[in-house]
Amino acid sequence: MANMDTADWTSAIDLKLPIAVQAHAWIKRAILTLELKPNEALSEKELSLKFGISRTPVREALIKLADEGLVDIFPQRGTYVSPIRMPEVIEAQFIREALETAVVRKAAQTADSAFKSRLVANLAQQKAAVADERLADFMQLDELFHHAMSDFCNLPRGWRVIQNVKGQLDRVRYLSLPHPGHVSQLYVQHEAICEAIGAGDVEVAVDHMSHHLREVFKSIKELMRDKPSLFA
C-alpha cells in the first residue's frame, strides 16, 4: 500500500458516526485522486490499523467499493485497486448523461430564485478556484454544482445512482484536470448551463449539459498514451 501518514487516516474517522460509511468515503477519495493507484494491493489489516478501527467496517467498505468497480476482490489472492476500465468509463458516462440531462430539464422547468442564487454562488467559488489553480477544490465544487440540481428536484436516489456508477469515470475526470485550459473550459460550460436554467430555456440547458458531460472523452486517448499503467 502507499506510504501515507497514519495520523491523517486515524483523524479521518469520527467514532460517533457510522464507521463503515466513513471508511468507504476515505478509501474512495484516495482511489479517485490516485493516492491509491490502480493495481495497488489493499490490506484489510493494514487499513484497519491506519484508521484505528476494527477490520469489519473496512471489509464492508471494500465490498461496497467492489460493487462500484473501484476495487477487485480475488478470493485467496487478495484485494486490489481496480485499473481504469474503458468499457466501464463509457457505460458510466452514458448512465450519467441520461440521468443528468433529465434532471437539468426538470430543474430548468421549475427553478426558483433561491435555486438560481445557489448555482450562482457555487459558480463564484468555481471561478476563484480556477483563478487560483485549486484543482481539487474545483472538482469538489463541480460535484456540488451537479448535486444541487438533483437536490433541488428532490431526486436523492437518482444522485446516489450517479455516484454509484461513476467511480471509474471520476478517476479519468481527476486525471484530466491538470490539462491546460481544461478546468477553465468546464467552468465556462457550467456557466452556460446556469444561464440557460436562469432563463428557463429548457432545451438549451439540456444541450449544454449533454455537451459538458462528454467533455471527458477529449482527454482519454492522451491519458491512455501517457499513463498506460493506470488502465486495464
Rank of each mutant, 00 (worst) to 15 (best):
Ala12Ile: 07
Tyr174Glu: 04
Asn3Cys: 03
Pro178Cys: 00
Thr33Leu: 11
Leu36Glu: 11
Phe94Glu: 14
Leu119Arg: 04
Thr101Cys: 10
Ser210Val: 07
Phe152Arg: 07
Val71Tyr: 07
Ala128Thr: 13
Ala61Ile: 09
Ser229Asn: 07
Ala92Pro: 08
Arg85Leu: 05
Arg173Lys: 13
Gln189Ala: 14
Arg214Gln: 15
Glu44Asp: 05
Leu141Tyr: 01
Trp159Ser: 02
Val188His: 04
Ser210Gln: 12
Asp207Glu: 15
Ala108Lys: 06
Ala12Leu: 13
Ala128Ser: 06
Lys37Phe: 04
Val81Ser: 05
Asn164Tyr: 04
Phe145Lys: 05
Leu65Phe: 08
Glu133Gln: 13
Asp112Cys: 05
Cys194Ile: 00
Trp9Asn: 02
Asp201Arg: 12
Val81Asn: 03
Ala98Pro: 01
Phe152Tyr: 15
Thr79Gln: 02
Val204His: 08
Ser54Gln: 15
Pro75Thr: 09
Val89Gln: 02
Pro87Asp: 07
Leu36His: 10
His208Val: 02
His146Trp: 03
Glu97Val: 14
Val188Ile: 09
Glu46Asp: 14
Val120His: 04
Gln185Trp: 11
Val58Ala: 05
Asn122Tyr: 00
Leu141Ala: 01
Glu44Ala: 04
Tyr80Ile: 12
Val103Cys: 06
Glu97Met: 13
Glu88Arg: 08
His208Gln: 12
Gly69Asn: 05
Ala7Val: 08
Thr79Asn: 00
Ala131Ser: 15
Arg160Lys: 12
Met1Ala: 13
Thr6His: 07
Asp5Met: 12
Ser210Asn: 09
Lys166Asn: 13
Ser82Thr: 08
Tyr187Gln: 11
Leu144Asp: 15
Leu70Ser: 04
Ala196Ser: 10
Tyr80Met: 10
Arg59Asp: 00
Gly78Trp: 11
Ala23Glu: 14
Ile53Lys: 04
Ala192Arg: 15
Asn154Pro: 02
Ser43Pro: 13
Leu123Asn: 01
Val188Glu: 15
Leu47Val: 12
Ala148Phe: 00
Phe217Met: 07
Glu88Cys: 02
Ala136Leu: 12
Glu60Tyr: 07
Gln76Phe: 10
Asp67Phe: 04
Met224Asp: 03
Arg96Gln: 12
Phe51Ala: 05
